[in-house]
Design a protein around this nucleic acid. Structure first.
Length: 854
RNA sequence: GCGGGCGUGAUGGAAUGGUAGACAUAUCGGACUUAAAAUCCGUGGGCCGUAUGGCCGUGGGGGUUCAAGUCCCCCCGCCCGCACCA
C-alpha cells in the first residue's frame, strides 16, 4: 500500500492532463459553452497566496463545468505593462521587457504545479507585440468613431512617476502608485469618450443581476447622475462683461427658499472682482487655500465675502439676492455657482447662520411636531423620495415627494423660459495618455503640415524600440534618437510619432475578449467572440470594483460599435464574484526605541494562546492582517506546495471561510488539511483491497452518498465552497465508519473522489485510478443525486413545546398530519407538559417540525 | 455627514423563519507504543446535577410570529465605499 505522496502524484497527473489536452478549450455545437475567468495577474515575479485562492476558485468552477458537460474556456495571461518594470530598470539598469518576461516565466513555473485546469495555449501578455498591436488597431477604430479624442486639459501630474494620472488614480490628492502629492498641469492629452456612455453605463447596472450589490452601488456613485435645473440669475447691475450668473441645482423645487447666491473664488466674476480689489484678492487667496487636504476639509470652516453685487430672483424681479464668494463652492463642479437655500441644505445653513442671511423653509414634515431651521433646528433634508408638506409650492400639490416637486419645478421653469432640466454626471472622460516607455504606443503621428494624423493600419504594430535608457527621469521615447522620426501617413513628409503611451488600464479593458481568439490577426475573431462571450463567471478582488470593471464595460460597448464584439457582449461579465484576501497574523516585538520589529512565523512558537520567540520573549500577535513583505507575514505558495502539495494549498484556501470573506492562513490549518487528504488516500487504499459482501449498511451509505452529491453540488453552484468542503469532511467520516460491503464502499469512494476533484484534482485522479475508474476523473460526468435516495422512509420530527425543543418522534415520511398529531400528543414529554390538559394550538409542519402550544 | 455590510463557543465559521453551534482548529481524556511521532476513539457554549435532565445562550433593548441568529424598530461596536457634489 502506497502512502499519500503529493510530490510524485501531482506532477504525474498534470502530465496526464497536458498529454490528453483536457483543458484546451474547443468550440462545438453539441455542448453549451462556459467561460470562467479570473482577473489576470501583474507579473511582479512571484505568485502570491491570494492568487492561489483566486485561481483555485475559478478552477473549481471550470472543472465542475467541464464535468457537467460544458465546453469550458478558462484562460490565463499577464497584465504586463506598467511602472514597476520601468522602476526595476531604473534601479538595476536592465530592460523592462527582460524583467517582465523573466517574471512571467517564473510565475508560470510557479503556477503550473498548482494543477489549474487552464488552457495554456491561449496565454499572452499585454506587452506582447501581437497584443498591443491589435490594441493600436482598436484605438484607430475608436478614433474614427469619435470614441477617443485629443484636447488640452488640466491634468493630475504625478511629480515622482512623472506622468499624468486619471481622476480615478488620484486618491486623497496623492498618486495611487507613488503616493506623491499630485500637481495640476495643462497638457494636450488623449481621452476616451466614456462620458457619452454615463447614462447607459449607469442604467445597465440594473440588469447585472449576478454582480454584488456593493460593486453596483460603487459604480453608480462613481458615475453619479443628478437631475436638476440649469438657469441664471440676472445681475441688477452688470459687472464687467457679466450680466448673469449661471447656476445648476438639483433642488429647483426650493427656489422660493433662496437666500443668497454663492460663487466659487475661481468664478469669472470673482476673478474680475479680485483684479480690481485687493481685499477681494486677499479673501480669494485664503478661500482657495483650504480644501486641498483632507484635514482642512474636516475642519471646514465656512468662509464668505459679500461682493456687494445683487441679482434678481427669476420668479420676482423685485426680489434681490446678495452674491457671496464662498470657499465651499468648487469651480469644476456644475457652474461654479449655487443658490443658497439654508433651510434645506446643512452647508448653506452653516453659512447663513454665520453671516446672518435669511432662512426660509419651503416644506416641512408631513406629520408630527417639528422645529423649523428658522428657529434654530437643523436643516430639513429628507430623502427626495419622501413625501412632505409644502409651505411654498409653486407647481404641485401641498403634499408631494421631493422627486415629484423637482420634476414639476423643472417643467414650470422650462414653461416660463427660466432655464432647462439637465441631467449631469460626475463621471469624466478617461484620460489615457501616459508619459512612459513601458506601455502601448499611441498610434498617431504629428505632421507640421497635416497636424495630428492617425497611423494607417498597415503600419501597425508601432513597436516599442528596444534600445532605450532609464538613467534620467521622464519618457525615454522622447529622447530616443530615431524612433520618433517617421513619414506622415497622409502627406509623406517627415513627421514625429506620438511619444505618449496608453494607460495600462487600457490593456486590461479588453483582454477577456482577446482570449476568445488570442492569435487572430484582428483584435477579435467575431465567430469566436460570438461563441465564447460573455464571461459567464468573472472572479477577482473588490479593489477593481470601479476602475477596471467600469473601463471594461465601456470598452465592450466601444468594441461593439466598431464591430469587434457582438452587441450581446456589451456587458462582458455576466456574473462577478469578488473574493476575500488571504491574511496572516503579524508577530511583533518592539526595539529599545519602541519601534516595531516584525518576526517571521518560523521564528515564533505558539502555545497557551500566546506566541514566543526562541529566547522566550513574548510577541504581540496581530491576527488576520493583510500580507505584506515589510511585516514579514507573507506566505509563499511555492514553499507551501513543497511542504504539503498543491491539493493541500487549494483545499485550505477554500475551506473555513466563505469565499467573499478573508481567510486567515495558519500553519495548523494547513497541517490539518494535509492530514485529512492523507486520510482520504489511506481510506481509498483500504477500500481498494476490500471484498466484504453486500449487507444491510449499504443502503444507508448510498443514501448518505446521494445527500453528499446534492449538498456538494449545491455548494459549488452557489460559491459556498467552504460549506461544500464541510460536507466532504462529513461524508468522509461517514464513509470511514461505514460497515457497508466492499462494492458499496467502493462506489461511495469513487463518488467522494469526484466530488473532491474540483478542489483536489490530483488526489481525485489518483483515487479514481486506484479504484479502476474509467479514463480521467476530470472527464467523468459529474454524479447526479437521485431524488428518491435523498428521502428516507422515515423522518425524525423535533417536538417543540411553546417553541422550545423538548423531544422528537420518528414517523413514516408520508404519514398524514392527523396521525402525526396523535403520536406527538402521545409523546411522554408532551403528556408531562400538558399534565392532563389540552394544548391551545398544535402546529405540524410536515417533514419539518411539530410545535405544541400550551 | 451619506450609502452599504457585519456582530454566533477559546478560534475560523454552519444554519430555505422550524432541533443554534454543521465542519474544522485549539483543549482535555483514552487506546496503540519501551517512548515519541503517526493513527484511532472520546470530550469539545455557560451554569446546576452522579445521572435521566433542567435553566440560560447568536452585541444591547423592544416588537411581529405557534416558532426569530434569520423579519421590523431603536441603540452600541467594527469594517468597506463615497463625500464642502450644488
Amino acid at each position: 500500500m502506497s502512502r499519500y505522496d503529493p510530490a510524485t502524484l501531482e506532477p504525474k497527473w498534470q502530465h496526464e492532463w497536458e498529454k490528453a489536452g483536457t483543458f484546451v478549450a474547443r468550440r462545438s455545437a453539441d455542448k453549451p459553452k462556459y467561460y470562467v475567468l479570473e482577473m489576470f495577474p501583474y507579473p511582479s515575479g512571484r505568485i502570491h497566496i491570494g492568487h492561489v485562492r483566486n485561481y483555485t476558485m475559478g478552477d473549481v468552477i471550470a472543472r465542475y463545468k467541464l464535468a457537467t458537460g460544458h465546453n469550458v474556456l478558462h484562460p490565463m495571461g499577464f497584465d504586463a505593462f506598467g511602472m514597476p518594470a520601468e522602476n526595476a530598470a531604473m534601479a538595476s539598469g536592465g530592460h523592462p521587457a527582460d524583467w517582465t518576461y523573466q517574471n512571467i516565466a517564473t510565475m508560470v513555473a510557479q503556477m503550473k504545479p498548482l494543477g489549474f485546469g487552464l488552457d495554456w495555449s491561449r496565454m499572452f501578455a499585454t506587452c506582447d507585440v501581437e497584443y498591443y498591436g491589435q490594441q493600436q488597431a482598436l484605438f484607430l477604430d475608436f478614433l474614427e468613431r469619435g470614441l477617443v479624442y485629443r484636447r488640452a486639459a488640466v491634468v493630475n501630474w504625478d511629480p515622482v512617476d512623472m506622468t499624468v494620472l486619471a481622476n480615478e488614480q488620484v486618491i486623497d490628492g496623492k498618486g495611487w502608485r507613488s503616493g506623491a502629492d499630485v500637481e495640476r498641469r495643462e497638457l494636450t492629452q488623449w481621452f476616451f469618450k466614456i462620458s457619452d456612455f454615463s447614462g447607459e453605463l449607469l442604467d445597465a447596472l440594473d440588469r447585472l443581476d449576478d454582480w454584488p450589490a456593493k460593486v453596483k452601488t460603487m459604480q453608480a456613485n462613481w458615475i453619479g447622475r443628478s437631475r436638476g435645473l440649469q438657469f441664471g440669475f440676472d445681475l441688477v447691475a452688470p459687472m464687467a462683461d457679466q450680466t448673469r450668473i449661471e447656476v445648476y441645482t438639483t433642488r429647483p423645487d426650493t427656489l422660493l427658499g433662496a437666500s443668497f447666491i454663492g460663487i466659487s473664488p475661481d468664478h469669472p466674476i470673482a476673478r474680475a472682482l479680485e483684479a480690481a480689489d485687493p481685499a477681494v484678492a486677499e479673501f480669494c487667496a485664503r478661500a482657495r487655500k483650504g480644501g486641498t487636504t483632507e484635514e482642512a476639509i474636516e475642519k471646514a470652516e465656512k468662509l464668505g465675502l459679500d461682493t456687494g453685487l445683487r441679482v434678481r430672483h427669476p420668479f420676482d424681479a423685485e426680489w434681490q439676492l446678495p452674491v457671496w464668494i464662498a470657499n465651499f463652492i468648487l469651480m469644476d463642479y456644475g457652474t461654479g455657482a449655487i443658490f443658497g437655500c439654508p433651510a434645506h441644505d446643512a452647508r448653506d445653513l452653516d453659512f447663513a447662520r454665520k453671516y446672518h442671511l435669511p432662512v426660509i423653509s419651503t416644506f416641512v414634515p408631513r406629520t408630527g411636531a417639528h422645529a423649523l431651521p428658522e428657529d434654530g433646528a437643523p436643516a430639513f433634508v429628507p430623502p427626495k423620495s419622501e413625501t412632505v408638506r409644502w409651505t411654498l409650492p409653486f407647481a404641485w400639490a401641498e403634499e408631494a415627494s421631493g422627486e415629484q416637486a423637482v420634476e414639476a419645478a423643472i417643467g414650470f421653469c422650462e414653461g416660463r423660459g427660466i432655464g432647462q432640466g439637465v441631467t449631469k454626471f460626475r463621471l469624466r472622460d478617461w484620460g489615457l495618455s501616459r508619459q512612459r516607455y513601458w506601455g502601448c504606443p499611441i498610434p498617431v503621428v504629428h505632421c507640421d503640415a497635416c497636424g495630428v494624423v492617425p497611423e494607417t493600419k498597415e503600419n501597425l504594430p508601432i513597436e516599442l524600440p528596444r534600445d532605450v535608457s532609464f538613467d534620467i527621469p521622464g519618457n525615454p521615447l522622447d529622447r530616443h534618437p530615431t524612433w520618433r522620426d517617421c513619414a506622415c501617413p497622409a502627406c509623406g513628409a517627415p513627421a514625429r510619432r506620438e511619444t505618449d503611451t496608453m494607460d495600462t488600464f487600457v490593456d486590461s479593458s479588453w483582454y477577456f475578449a482577446r482570449f476568445t481568439a488570442p492569435r487572430a490577426q484582428t483584435p477579435t475573431d467575431m465567430a469566436e467572440a460570438a461563441y465564447w462571450m460573455n464571461v459567464d463567471q468573472y472572479i477577482g478582488g473588490i479593489e477593481h470594483a470601479i476602475l477596471h470593471l467600469l473601463y471594461s464595460r465601456f470598452f465592450a460597448r466601444a468594441m461593439a460599435i466598431c464591430g469587434h464584439l457582438p452587441d450581446t457582449a456589451i456587458e462582458p461579465f455576466d456574473a462577478l464574484f469578488t473574493q476575500g484576501m488571504v491574511t496572516h497574523a503579524i508577530y511583533m516585538t518592539r526595539d529599545g526605541a519602541g519601534r516595531p520589529v516584525y518576526h517571521y512565523p518560523e521564528e515564533v512558537t505558539l502555545r497557551d494562546g500566546g506566541g514566543y520567540l526562541t529566547d522566550g520573549r513574548a510577541v504581540e500577535i496581530i491576527p488576520s492582517a493583510k500580507m505584506s513583505k515589510s511585516k514579514n507575514n507573507v506566505v509563499d505558495p511555492v514553499a507551501i506546495i513543497k511542504a504539503y502539495g498543491a491539493d493541500t494549498a487549494r483545499w485550505f484556501v477554500l475551506s473555513d471561510s466563505p469565499p467573499e470573506r478573508d481567510v486567515e492562513w495558519t500553519a495548523a490549518g494547513a497541517e490539518a488539511t494535509a492530514k485529512h487528504l492523507a486520510r482520504v488516500h489511506r481510506l481509498a487504499s483500504d477500500i481498494a483491497q476490500e471484498t466484504s459482501p453486500a449487507n444491510g449498511a449499504d443502503g444507508d451509505l448510498l443514501r448518505e452518498m446521494h445527500k453528499a452529491i446534492f449538498d456538494v453540488t449545491a455548494g459549488i453552484d452557489s460559491f459556498g465552497f467552504n460549506a461544500a468542503i464541510a460536507k466532504l469532511y462529513a461524508f468522509t467520516n461517514t464513509l470511514g465508519k461505514s460497515t457497508a460491503g466492499g462494492t458499496a464502499r467502493r462506489q461511495a469512494m469513487l463518488t467522494l473522489a469526484q466530488l473532491m476533484s474540483p478542489m483536489t484534482p490530483h488526489l481525485a485522479e489518483e483515487i479514481w485510478a486506484m479504484l479502476g475508474g474509467a479514463g480521467l476523473i476530470a472527464n467523468a460526468p459529474w454524479p447526479v443525486a437521485d431524488a428518491a435516495m435523498l428521502i428516507s422512509d422515515t423522518v425524525t420530527l423535533p417536538i417543540q413545546i411553546n417553541g422550545k425543543r423538548k423531544s422528537e418522534i420518528t414517523v413514516p415520511k408520508d404519514m398524514p398530519k392527523e396521525e402525526v398529531e396523535k403520536i406527538a400528543l402521545a409523546d411522554d414529554a408532551v403528556q408531562k407538559a400538558l399534565a392532563g390538559g389540552q394544548p391551545k394550538k398544535l402546529i405540524v409542519v410536515p417533514g419539518r417540525i411539530v410545535n405544541v402550544v400550551i
